[in-house]
Computed example of a mutant assay.
Amino acid sequence: MAETIPRREIILQEAAHLFREKSYPGANLRELARRAGIQGGSIYHHFASKQEILFQLMDHTMTDMIERLTERLADTRTPSEKLRKTINFHIEYHVTGPDQTYITDEELRNLTPENYLKVVEKRDRYQKIIEQILIDGKSEEGWQLDEPKLYTRALIKMCAGVSTWFKPQGSLSVPQIGEAYIRLLCNGLLPR
């Protein structure tokens, strides 16, 4: 028997797609309701406002990314292996949920100040996980690394960008792209 997706989840999925397609300011709730298969006013049974929908999308995405990455790294010991798992995770996550990750990356400016601070706090927690891997790689494995924050941001953007050009039927799979990125990054970190 097929699993029924809760209406709230359908609205969030459709909102992510609509906001990516038309931008948050360009999207309206009437069209969102139509895409979600409900009457216009029914959205208010699930969400108080369009702003709440945007915030819920971003907050859920960042929470999910933190939890999944932490889980994936749980039994990993070396910085090299943590880096490999992190790169693969970040690419996979962005390729499998491009609407949600795009919104989380590109629509921060449309959050209210209070919601902005909440999402950025989670984004910073996620970045800290990656930054710590790089710092540990420097101290434990001799990686050549002078700006951990800069390298972290570059790594995140490089991996997230795969979702803009990746095609499942393309010549490289997600794991193959991850390995290529790992080689690219690690060759720059090797002791000289």
Rank of each mutant, 00 (worst) to 15 (best):
S49Y: 11
Y151G: 00
I11G: 09
I177R: 00
T112I: 06
P25L: 06
S42H: 13
T164F: 13
P25N: 09
P113W: 03
E9R: 12
P6E: 09
W143I: 04
E121D: 14
I10C: 07
T70S: 15
P113D: 02
H94E: 06
M62Y: 14
A27D: 06
A36G: 07
D59E: 14
Q144I: 09
L29V: 03
E67S: 15
H94M: 03
L12Q: 10
T76S: 11
E114S: 14
V120K: 10
E52T: 04
A16L: 15
N110Q: 13
P148L: 02
K122L: 13
N187M: 09
G40P: 02
S49V: 04
I87M: 11
P191W: 13
F89Y: 14
L150T: 05
S23M: 07
L83M: 11
A36Q: 06
G161H: 13
Y102V: 01
R30C: 01
A48Q: 09
E107K: 14
R34C: 03
L172S: 12
L145A: 06
A74W: 12
L145S: 04
R30E: 02
G137Q: 02
F19S: 05
L111C: 07
E106G: 10
G170H: 10
Q176N: 08
T78S: 15
L155P: 04
G41D: 09
Q176L: 01
F89R: 10
Q51R: 15
E14Y: 07
T4P: 00
I103F: 01
K85G: 01
A160Q: 07
I182W: 01
T61Q: 14
T63I: 12
Y44R: 07
T61A: 08
L189Q: 01
H60P: 00
T101L: 12
A180G: 08
Q176W: 00
F19W: 10
Q56R: 15
E81P: 00
S139I: 05
P168L: 03
K118I: 01
F47W: 04
R72M: 11
R125F: 09
Y102L: 10
R123M: 07
I91F: 12
E140D: 12
